[in-house]
């Protein structure tokens, strides 16, 4: 039985797809057979972030409508062993997702995979509800900013009231992933701190991903940022994967980096 993880947020543009790609790759690197499903039907992005856009033939909706079987639609990642992508359809809309269809696909994937990562679309409508309905675990991606935190709170409420686990009286495991964190802006009082967000959402912190140029660079290159082991964002995602697997690691990148001797002399940023 695979563990179903939904990466969700409510708000758009906070880093759900980046996180799905990074976490999926991270779990696969740890040896778990992992599939990342793009639930954002009509706004397909995951394939771009994971660099497999030119290999998409069949998609998630084709499988739901039984126009293709799973093996035809699953794209095997070229860089990372054990990693697969199930892309969304670009030509349909969210109504193509039916609960029975999604359930059938997830059940079939469950037989062979260890982790199924559902990359949720933004919002709280059908697409987002489909993505979170079957989840065992939720990674709530949040930016340190009030509207993002409010939307995450809303999605947490939906998770615990409208998911399959909630209907069965069970609890969906919740994790907070704070992305685009900028310690110097927090220090300047322009951004909510980790403590503020933890206080408002009251769920365990899985990781803090610092705002980083490496993320944009990785996205444009179609390489999940976790593969950039040199970058702080890549390391932070790696830590988050370890924590998800039960390791206890101290949170990094929460402080303003100290400037080195030469940087101070030369006035570099």
């Amino acid at each position: 039985m695979a563990k179903i993880i939904v990466v969700t947020s409510g708000k758009g543009g906070v880093g759900k797809t980046t996180t799905s790609a990074a976490m999926g790759t991270g779990l696969a690197l740890q040896g778990f057979k992992t599939v990342v499903i793009d639930f954002d039907v009509g706004l397909r992005n995951l394939d771009l972030i994971m660099g497999c856009e030119r290999r998409v033939v069949y998609d998630f909706v084709n499988v739901i409508k039984q126009e293709a079987n799973l093996n035809q639609a699953l794209i095997k990642d070229k860089r990372t062993e054990n990693l697969y992508v199930l892309p969304a359809s670009q030509t349909r809309d969210k109504d193509a997702l039916t609960q029975e269809g999604v359930e059938a696909v997830l059940n079939e994937l469950s037989e062979t995979f260890d982790y199924i990562i559902c990359d949720s679309p933004a919002g709280i409508e059908k697409g987002a509800q489909m993505a979170l309905y079957f989840a065992d675990v939720a990674i709530v991606t949040t930016n340190p900013e009030v509207s993002s935190v409010r939307d995450s709170d809303r999605i947490l409420g939906i998770l615990q009231s409208k998911s399959r686990r909630a209907e069965r009286g069970e609890v969906v495991e919740e994790h907070l992933l704070l992305t685009r964190y900028n310690p110097s802006r927090v220090e300047a009082g322009e951004m909510l701190s980790v403590a503020d967000v933890e206080d408002i959402l009251a769920i365990p912190l899985l990781g803090v991903i610092p705002e980083s140029e490496a993320v944009l660079k990785a996205s444009n290159a179609g390489v999940p940022v976790i593969l950039d082991a040199e970058s702080d964002a890549g390391q932070a995602y790696d830590d988050a994967v370890q924590r998800l697997l039960g390791k206890e690691l101290e949170h990094r990148f929460l402080q303003v980096p100290k400037k080195g001797f030469f940087q101070r002399i030369l006035g570099g940023r």
Binding site: D153, R154, L156, G157, I158, Q160, S161, V171, A202
Partner: peptide, 8 residues
Amino acid sequence: TRPVRSGQ
């Protein structure tokens, strides 16, 4: 016993 979230 659980938090009452935004919108609930």
